[in-house]
């Protein structure tokens, strides 16, 4: 059994340095435009910043993975093509992609560039993954957050490439890359714009001691005076269905897989991904340090459950779909 690789988020150069210093095996980031799925204001890297990031990470023995994981726009694929070309020119250790047209381009134009299949491609079974492998020689797949541990084990027994799974952070209850709820409400979607429930459409309204969160004039949630709040993401809100009001899609909660690393290793997982390029470097520091310890312990066959409720949405955590009870 090989040691789990720890793949950490870097929304900014400072977060990258923090992640590397805290023990990341690999760091992932995106360019500062719509070519990546965390196209948030003030975040991400210029070409020059990526170049410096590569030097810093490589000096510490960490890999750099570039996410170009949104879908290129019809009639305007230039920014995506440029991102792929820049990644190849700078010699990133791998590029994480979802768009078939781009995978095809990268595979043909830069045969030496290592390709990872983004979670945004929603490859949820071995047949789909093997298709991508055969066609584009992808070397790793990031699995969608809708699979159970036994399902992951089954997939690993039928594919020949690495699997990376989410281990901490925001929970997407929907199959990633196949959700346009955000654009239905705000006009901006993860696939086309690299954002979900974008801040530009969020309003916080303080009503006495209560906090109301609106997304494009739709009420997403209301929190009482001492209640833990969550992101104003539209699938994490409270809604009314079947005459009851509650968290219909997902509670404000974060994924935390520190407690099931042994099971994930046993299921053949190669790498663990920490979500949160939009989070601060304080978050990155704490989560990476904790996972470094948990992975090192797991290598010795020890289970180390680390609670990080202070960093979690709603102050709670879950093992999500890894445990079938979630469904």
């Amino acid at each position: 059994m090989t040691k789990l690789e720890l793949v950490c988020p870097a929304g900014t150069p400072a977060a990258l340095r923090v992640a590397v210093d805290a023990g990341a095996d690999a760091v992932y980031m995106g360019f500062r435009d719509e070519t990546n799925a965390r196209n948030f204001p003030g975040l991400n890297f210029s070409v020059d910043e990526l170049s410096e990031a590569l030097d810093y990470a490589h000096a510490a023995g960490a890999k750099v993975l570039l996410a170009v994981n949104t879908y290129a726009a019809a009639g305007n694929s230039e920014p995506w093509i440029k991102a792929v070309d820049n990644a190849a020119k700078l010699n990133v250790d791998a590029i994480i992609m979802a768009d078939i047209g781009l995978l095809d381009y990268a595979h043909r134009t830069h045969p030496d560039l290592r390709l990872h299949l983004s979670v945004q491609a929603s490859a949820s079974n071995a047949v789909a993954i093997n298709h991508y492998t055969k066609e584009f020689n992808i070397r790793r797949v990031v699995l969608p957050r809708v699979l159970t541990v036994p399902e992951i084990r089954d997939i690993n027994s039928k594919i020949a490439i690495n699997t990376e799974v989410f281990a901490f952070g925001g929970m997407c209850p929907m199959a990633e890359g196949r959700c346009s709820m955000s654009s239905y409400i705000t006009g901006k979607s993860p696939n086309m714009n690299g954002v979900c429930s974008p801040a530009s459409h969020v309003t916080y309204i303080q009503q006495g001691h209560d906090l109301k969160t609106n997304l494009a004039d739709f009420t997403i949630n209301k929190f009482g005076p001492n209640e833990q709040a969550g992101y104003p993401t539209l699938c994490k809100g409270r809604f009314t269905a079947n005459e009851e009001t509650g968290y219909l899609f997902e509670e404000p909660t974060s994924l935390n897989a520190t407690g099931i690393l042994l099971e994930l290793m046993e299921a053949g997982v190669t790498a663990l991904k920490i979500e949160g390029r939009q989070r601060s470097k304080a978050y990155v520091r704490e989560v990476v340090q904790n996972f470094r310890a948990a992975i090192d312990a797991a290598e010795q066959g020890e289970r180390m459950v680390i609670e990080m409720d202070n960093l979690s949405e709603g102050g709670q955590n879950t093992t999500g779909a890894y445990n079938k009870k979630w469904m």
């Binding site: 005076p225 833990q228 992101y231 601060s280 304080a282 978050y283 704490e286």
Partner: peptide, 11 residues
């Protein structure tokens, strides 16, 4: 030193 989102979650 601390995460702004976490401060926000905890109100």
């Amino acid at each position: 030193k601390v995460d702004g989102d976490a401060l926000f979650f905890s109100r």
